[in-house]
Design a protein around this nucleic acid. Sequence first.
DNA 1: TTAGGAACCTACTTTAGGGTAAGTACTTGT
DNA 2: ACAAGTACTTACCCTAAAGTAGGTTCCTAA
Lengths: 124, 124
Amino acid sequence: MTAIKPSSTRQENRQTAIAACPVSFVMDKIGGNWKPVILFQMMSGAKRYSEIKKAIPTITEKVLIQHLKQLQDDGLVLRKALDVVPPHVEYRLSKSGQALTPVLNAMAAWAFEHREFGGRKASR
Amino acid sequence: MTAIKPSSTRQENRQTAIAACPVSFVMDKIGGNWKPVILFQMMSGAKRYSEIKKAIPTITEKVLIQHLKQLQDDGLVLRKALDVVPPHVEYRLSKSGQALTPVLNAMAAWAFEHREFGGRKASR
DNA sequence: TTAGGAACCTACTTTAGGGTAAGTACTTGT
DNA sequence: ACAAGTACTTACCCTAAAGTAGGTTCCTAA
């Protein structure tokens, strides 16, 4: 629910970029520090909330849930609350979420081919 | 040169994400509001600074130069100062910058296939 | 009965990125 | 003489995303 102030130049520029540039559009969906990592977790199948949390120890619960919600709103992941005895929640990739796999693979391939990935540290 | 405070949790998390996740690594390079747009401009060949500026009217000079510098530092674009009579500067994609083309195309393809791109507005 | 896990929510603070506005050094056209 | 273009730089401000630190409800096992 992170409040936004839609009448800022920043926001306007962002919206126009997203509207005009498909790459920006994708960035908007899977960008950020954590979304790729979260998505990756779910690429190996449905995961429980607590499983994801455990798999990414440094993420805070606030941010994790926030991102999971955005991913749901964007239709990339599906949430299913299981009505078993200790009730728990499962997250998994939707159809379009799974369709991102080749995109993510293309990125990963580039990362490995170029710029000695794993070596030298990032600049910013 | 936007000063960074390297001893923040934020920065640490970011660095570990970049080091561990190839997708985050790529995001770090081509993420942000403007980098995709700038890169796109150069995909059609070398461009002068002022040409890029004119092509993206809403970007400020500060941000444009800032991004061009980051892209240079990351080895994605090459800067060439031409020593002609009114001297000007040319920017073009490097080898690894050009290697991003399939990645960007994959993203664009996904954007068009899924989520009725161009329709409904982005959530955030 | 109290501790703990699961899946959240809420209020408050920090910071990096982006925006505003201005100035520089050089040259060319009028 | 002066405006205008080219490629920048610098100082300052604002905001959205991320981090901190709690609380909540429900259930179960010891």
